[in-house]
Amino acid sequence: MPGDALSAERIDAILDDRTRSLAARGATPEARPTRALLLCRAGTEAVGLPLEAVAEVFPFRPCTPVPGAPASLIGLTGRGGILISVVDLAAALGAATAPAAGGGHVVVLRRDGPRIGLRVERVLAVADAALEAGSEGLGRRAVAGYARAAPSGSRPDANVTEAGFAVIDVPALLAPLLAAGRPSPA
């Protein structure tokens, strides 16, 4: 039975060494929660819109202009018998606009109140991304942070995910536009 005692001692020594080795590595990095985003091109910028804020996407078509509207409001369009105000996302962010090949897309937002759609040059993909704080890029108050897409089976545009993209804070984006439409108190 001395062989059994020796092997038990050896097993304990191996387990102790392994425990010390794992402890020396430090804590494993904490997995950051990801968020589902709709990746789009807005002008020359790549942006992510929270997927929970998106109701639908359809191809852009000409809109009826609204006199006296903010510069970023392209106009009004109808969809399924419902009137939608279409806002150019790049203009609302103060980013450089780019002519859309094929007209782009309208991302209709899920919200109470008037229906609002954001015109983007292109919808790229749906991706999971971890939100990071950052001070570079668009730097507008409508930007909630910056992200890189998490690896997944279907990769969105590799150039967008490697460089990262701005994640839009939809309520902050809409606040000045909705306030511009209200008459000022007399």
Rank of each mutant, 00 (worst) to 15 (best):
M1C: 12
P2Q: 10
P2L: 14
A5D: 14
A5H: 12
A5I: 15
L6V: 15
A8V: 10
A8G: 05
A13E: 00
D16Q: 05
D16M: 08
D17E: 14
R18F: 06
R18L: 12
R20Q: 08
R25C: 10
G26L: 12
A27G: 07
E30P: 13
A31H: 00
A31T: 13
R32M: 14
R35C: 04
R35Y: 00
A36V: 02
L39P: 01
R41A: 15
R41Y: 01
E45V: 15
A46V: 15
V47P: 09
G48K: 02
G48R: 01
L49R: 05
L49G: 00
L49Q: 02
L49T: 11
P50C: 06
P50S: 10
L51I: 13
E52G: 13
A53F: 03
E56M: 10
V57A: 06
V57T: 03
T64D: 10
P67Y: 03
G68L: 15
A69H: 00
A71H: 11
A71N: 01
A71I: 09
A71F: 09
S72W: 09
L73A: 04
I74L: 12
G75C: 04
G75L: 07
T77K: 01
G78S: 15
R79Q: 05
R79P: 03
G81W: 04
L83N: 13
S85Y: 08
V86D: 00
V86L: 07
V86A: 06
A90W: 04
A91V: 07
A92Q: 05
L93T: 10
G94R: 14
A95S: 03
T97Y: 02
A98I: 15
A98S: 06
P99V: 15
A101I: 14
G102I: 13
G102Y: 06
H105N: 11
V106M: 04
V106L: 06
V106Y: 00
R110K: 11
D112E: 14
P114Y: 05
I116E: 08
G117S: 10
L118F: 05
V120K: 03
E121M: 15
E121F: 01
R122N: 01
R122T: 10
V123L: 07
A127V: 10
A130P: 01
E136V: 13
G145W: 00
G145Q: 05
G145F: 03
A147V: 10
A147N: 05
R148S: 07
R148E: 00
A150H: 04
S152H: 12
S152D: 05
S152I: 12
S152K: 08
S154L: 12
S154E: 13
P156D: 00
N159L: 14
V160K: 07
T161R: 06
E162W: 12
A163N: 01
G164T: 01
F165P: 11
A166E: 09
V167Y: 00
I168F: 02
A172Y: 07
A172R: 09
A172L: 05
L173D: 11
L174Y: 09
L177I: 13
L177Q: 03
L178W: 02
R182T: 02
P183N: 00
P185T: 09
